[in-house]
Design a protein around this nucleic acid. Structure first.
Length: 231
DNA sequence: AGGACGCCTTTGGTTACTTCA
DNA sequence: GGTGAAGTAACCAAAGGCGTC
């Protein structure tokens, strides 16, 4: 059975649905019954027509009837979601069972899982994108603060921070600061020269502190969500 | 080699919403 | 202001190609 697509009106089914009488028309929203297209379950199988849902007539190689659009029922979606929560992939047996349960073809279940995985991944990517944006924002802010601090230090005519070698405590050029590839923290030792208060030497694996808060130099940053607490 | 499977991209149908006469 | 047609965007099932095992 095939109903010619009728895209000009929503009052009639615009696709052929196995098991659905061809004369079936759907009242528009507002018409008697108050059933909207969205509420209407076009896959609802009329009594006696269940098997036809699995009818293998939608493979439309060249020349065949136009592809049909299936809309899963709420119950089917719910069950699929439920089983997706338990397992993101199905083995053939699970697929078969689920398909039987849902009165769908195994291929349909397979496709649903495929699309569902894709949606999950998209969502995940979007979340990561948001996270990176926020991280970038906080780094920019941190950078801005540090620049400001540098300005302040320069204004106070304080010499540049001296980095001491962890081995012999000899001063190192700042360019030899190394960053841990894993946690991205600077691991050099930093001595901040201070007027009057004398040098404050700290290990700069994270933040340095100083008696004078305005002279504290934050070196490196703690990347959020780092898997391990310590380097 | 070839079959099964998953991923990716694209296609096409449906629906909700907006605009305009 | 209410109404219906046309246009548009978003969503999603499905197809097809490709890589991997």
């Amino acid at each position: 059975m095939a109903i010619l697509p009728n895209t000009s009106t929503c009052l009639e089914l615009t696709m052929s649905i196995p098991g659905l009488p061809s004369s079936l028309s759907i009242p528009s929203p507002g018409e008697g019954g108050g059933v909207s297209m969205k509420d209407l379950d076009i896959n609802q199988i009329p009594s006696g027509g269940e098997e036809e849902c699995m009818e293998d007539d939608d493979e439309s190689p060249n020349g065949g009837p136009p592809r049909k659009k299936l809309r899963l029922t709420k119950e089917q979606s719910r069950l699929l979601e439920e089983s997706f929560r338990q397992n993101h992939t199905l083995n053939p047996k699970q697929k078969e069972v689920l398909a039987m349960q849902l009165k769908l073809k195994p291929r349909q279940v397979e496709v649903w899982f495929q699309n569902r995985r894709a949606r999950s991944k998209l969502k995940q990517t979007e979340m990561e994108c948001e996270y990176l944006k926020r991280w970038f924002g906080s780094l920019s802010e941190q950078n801005r603060r540090l620049q400001k601090e540098v300005e302040e230090l320069r204004a106070m005519k304080v010499g540049p921070p001296t980095v001491l070698s962890p081995h012999n405590c000899e001063p190192l050029p700042a360019s030899t600061l190394t960053m841990c590839p894993r946690c991205e923290r600077v691991t050099a030792t930093i001595a901040v020269q201070q007027d009057r208060a004398g040098p404050t030497t700290t290990t700069a694996t994270g933040t340095t502190t100083s008696a004078n808060p305005t002279l504290s130099a934050k070196v490196g940053f703690v990347r959020p969500r780092h898997p391990s607490a310590a380097c």
